[in-house]
């Protein structure tokens, strides 16, 4: 059998007045949008929930633990379906919410449980004396977290957060399950319509890899920027 590349497939018209190339890039845009919005939610909720897991209040710590267990232990795809099918049928106004938003929250909350775990570990890795020192100078407990504990905890957890950030790009592919026209859905549909699965999947794979690489570089840059002078591996 003689295989012939046919990259021109991307210049074909989809029948909707645009080329497959055009469609692919707009799908890439959806992938990036889902991932970026979910990432923001994951970091915000992860920081709060992870922090609550370390506070002296038993009630708050329990609630935060429950959050983590809930969102970490149900498979992501199942969570997406629950958000998409189950919850809107129980609470009608949610039927009006675009599926993009539902997916962003589903992926964001799922990832927030994992980020919360990192944040908790980061905070707990700091010496107790840091908390004492913050409180002793008269900072309130929230101020001690805001100015003393979290800035160091986040620096410590940049490496695991890098892999969570790369995971969120990969996991955004589940959005295809609720018909969001992101890269994975594009790949499925385009290969069906054009019968050029190899070119389509290679191109999509390339975009996923490019994105992951860019995220990785970005996080490495962040790590460099926030590095504390005088600690191991710092520039000065």
């Amino acid at each position: 059998m003689n295989f012939r590349w046919e990259w021109e497939v991307f210049l074909r018209d989809t029948g909707g007045g645009e080329t497959y190339l055009h469609w692919m890039f707009s799908a890439w845009g959806w992938t990036l949008s889902v991932a970026a919005c979910a990432w923001i939610i994951a970091i915000l909720f992860g920081a709060v929930i992870g922090t609550l897991r370390t506070v002296p209040s038993l009630l708050l710590a329990r609630l935060a633990n429950a959050w983590v267990e809930l969102f970490r232990n149900i498979p992501l795809l199942v969570q997406i379906f629950i958000w998409y099918h189950v919850i809107p049928s129980l609470y009608k106004p949610l039927q009006e919410v675009p599926s993009f938003i539902l997916v962003v929250f589903a992926l964001g909350f799922f990832t927030s449980a994992r980020v919360a775990e990192q944040v908790r570990a980061g905070i707990q890795s700091l010496p107790d004396g840091q908390r004492y020192a913050g409180l002793a100078m008269g900072l309130t407990l929230p101020q001690t977290y805001r100015f003393v504990l979290l800035p160091m905890a986040f620096r410590i957890i940049v490496p695991p957060l890098t892999s969570e950030s790369m995971n969120i790009i990969k996991n955004s592919s589940v959005a295809f399950a609720v018909s969001i026209s992101e890269l994975t859905l594009f790949a499925l549909q385009a290969q069906e319509e054009t019968s050029r699965g190899i070119e389509v999947y290679l191109a999509v794979t390339g975009l996923y890899m490019l994105t992951a690489f860019a995220v990785n570089r970005l996080m490495a840059f962040v790590e460099q920027r926030v590095r504390v002078p005088g600690t191991l591996g710092a520039a000065r």
């Binding site: 409180l135 100078m137 008269g138 504390v228």
Partner: peptide
């Protein structure tokens, strides 16, 4: 917090805030 602010404390392991400059440690 208000009471503690009026009581200075120095620890065995210093407990300066490593991500803040010396001046920022003093002004926080």
């Amino acid at each position: 917090p208000r009471l503690r602010a009026r009581v200075g404390m120095v620890f065995q392991h210093f407990e300066l805030f490593p991500h803040l400059s010396i001046m920022e440690n003093l002004t926080l």
